[in-house]
Structure formats: structure tokens, C-alpha cells
């Protein structure tokens, strides 16, 4: 089940993720909502992609499928060449455990739990031994600039700091793909830029592929590629040089 995202096919490198005519419908009959209507996207390793578009255009739906939390109604979604739609719930959980990292708009840290323990969580499910788990978590917290905050609980951290803990949690297991749905949605401009700088350094320095949903062009400017959604379809797909 190992994704073959580092091997090459005849047409060049296999994309890390690929949407083939993906549709996603919620509800049935008259109440049916088509969130995605025939999506075709390929994203390769080491890309930094910003997803934009009006509210309700299907960005979060797309991210859920990217994150193997959900499966397409029709069409197929390939992760490292694997058609995720054919996997069981548990198989998708294993895929997430080993290859994916999530950053949410609302941080979603465990309350009354120290930053360290929050960051260790993905390693716990990977059954990383305790000593290695501690050192990796400490390392991740240092990477996001939270050295010395290891034993603070979310209640004792600012919004920006909480989001950095969440980012540390997302990267601690070195995922192939980091998904962030409006990671700066709850933060002020200054904090947002700090977070974006951090994401960009993970992308260029650690080679983590990042797909991020954002409403702000300023934040999208950090990405090397901006995909715009409209009514469940790709409206535009542009490469920019990335913000200097």
C-alpha cells in the first residue's frame, strides 16, 4: 500500500495526488447538493498550492477528499497512485497516519493537554517509542519557535501559539502532504505572515508538499501555485513565482 509517489511513469513523475473527474454530492434527491462537479487536478511532490474561491465553491470538500477523510461520489482520487475510493475506513486511517498532516482553522488541540502531548499524538498512533517520541516532539516545537512552551496547555497559549502547536503536530511525523484549511483564518495579519513563513520553510527546506485553503491573496502569494474554485470546478490554475 506504499504510495509510489517517487517512481516515474512514461508521462513523467507520478503526481502525489490526482483528481480524475471527481464529483461529490451531499444529500439525496431534491436536497442533493453538488459540492464538486468533475474536478481534474494533479499536484506533484514538493509543490506548495494555495486553493482559493468563493464560499461554498467546494474547497473544504476537496480538502477532505485530499486528506482521505472522505471519498468521491464519482470519479477517482489517487493518492500516490492509489485509488483512495476503494480503500476501507481503516485503510484510509493508516494512510493518514503515515502520509498526511492536518492544520485546521480552529487549531483543534486537545484541551488540558500540554503542547508536548498534543504534538506527540500522531507519533502515539504510529507507535513511536517514548524516548524518540519526546525528542521528535521537542524538535518540532523548536521548529515552530515554541521552545520552552512544552508544558503549556492550549489555555495558556495565544491563538498564534496554538496554531503553531497544531503545525508542529502536523509535521512531527514528517508527512508527505500537509493540508491546511484556512490556517490563518483566526489570526491577525502579523501572526498570519509568521505562519506562512513557517509553512514556506517546511516546503522548501523539508520538501513537504503543502495544499492550503485561504481567502487572502496575501497568503496565497506565498504558494507557488494558486488554484481557484468556482461552483465545484477549477476556475483557474496559475503558477506564480512565489512571494519573494
Amino acid at each position: 500500500m506504499t504510495p509510489s509517489h517517487s517512481s516515474y511513469s512514461e508521462n513523467g513523475p507520478v503526481p502525489l495526488v490526482e483528481f480524475q473527474q471527481v464529483t461529490k454530492a451531499y444529500g439525496r434527491g431534491a436536497a442533493e447538493v453538488k459540492a464538486l462537479r468533475g474536478l481534474n487536478v494533479r499536484i506533484h511532490e514538493k509543490e506548495f498550492v494555495a486553493v482559493m474561491g468563493p464560499s461554498g465553491s467546494g474547497k473544504s470538500t476537496c480538502m477532505n477528499i485530499l486528506g482521505c477523510l472522505d471519498i468521491p461520489t464519482t470519479g477517482s482520487y489517487l493518492f500516490g497512485g492509489i485509488p483512495v475510493g476503494t480503500l476501507s475506513r481503516d485503510q484510509r486511517a493508516i494512510l493518514r497516519r503515515h502520509y498526511l498532516g492536518f492544520v485546521f482553522q480552529g487549531y483543534n488541540l486537545l484541551g488540558r493537554t500540554s503542547a508536548m502531548e498534543n504534538v506527540e499524538l500522531p507519533l502515539l498512533y504510529r507507535r513511536t517509542p517514548a524516548s524518540r517520541r519526546h525528542s521528535l516532539a521537542r524538535e518540532a516545537l523548536r521548529t515552530v519557535g515554541l521552545e520552552g512552551f512544552e508544558h503549556h496547555t492550549p489555555a495558556e497559549l495565544s491563538g498564534g501559539q496554538q496554531q503553531r502547536v497544531a503545525i508542529a503536530r502536523a509535521i512531527v511525523a514528517q508527512p508527505a502532504l500537509l493540508l491546511a484549511d484556512e490556517p490563518t483564518g483566526n489570526l491577525d495579519t502579523e501572526k498570519s505572515h509568521e505562519i506562512m513563513d513557517m509553512l514556506r520553510s517546511f516546503n522548501s527546506g523539508l520538501g513537504i508538499t503543502i495544499i492550503m485553503v485561504t481567502h487572502e491573496p496575501d497568503m496565497a502569494a506565498y504558494a507557488g501555485r494558486v488554484i481557484r474554485f468556482k461552483d465545484g470546478q477549477v476556475d483557474s490554475d496559475n503558477r506564480n513565482g512565489g512571494k519573494a
Binding site: 486528506g67 477523510l69 475506513r89 481503516d90 486511517a93 493508516i94 494512510l95 493518514r96 497516519r97 503515515h98 498526511l100 492536518f102 483543534n108 486537545l110 484541551g111 499524538l121 500522531p122 498512533y125 504510529r126 503536530r169
Partner: peptide, 16 residues
């Protein structure tokens, strides 16, 4: 519920 959501997203299996 949210905590369980986080655990599932992070890769906890149902039986875990």
C-alpha cells in the same frame, strides 16, 4: 467529539 475527530484525522483506526 472534536477530540475524537482529531484522533481519527490523525490516523486513529476505529478500533483504536
Amino acid at each position: 467529539t472534536r477530540e475524537i475527530g482529531v484522533r481519527l484525522a490523525i490516523g486513529a483506526r476505529e478500533r483504536e
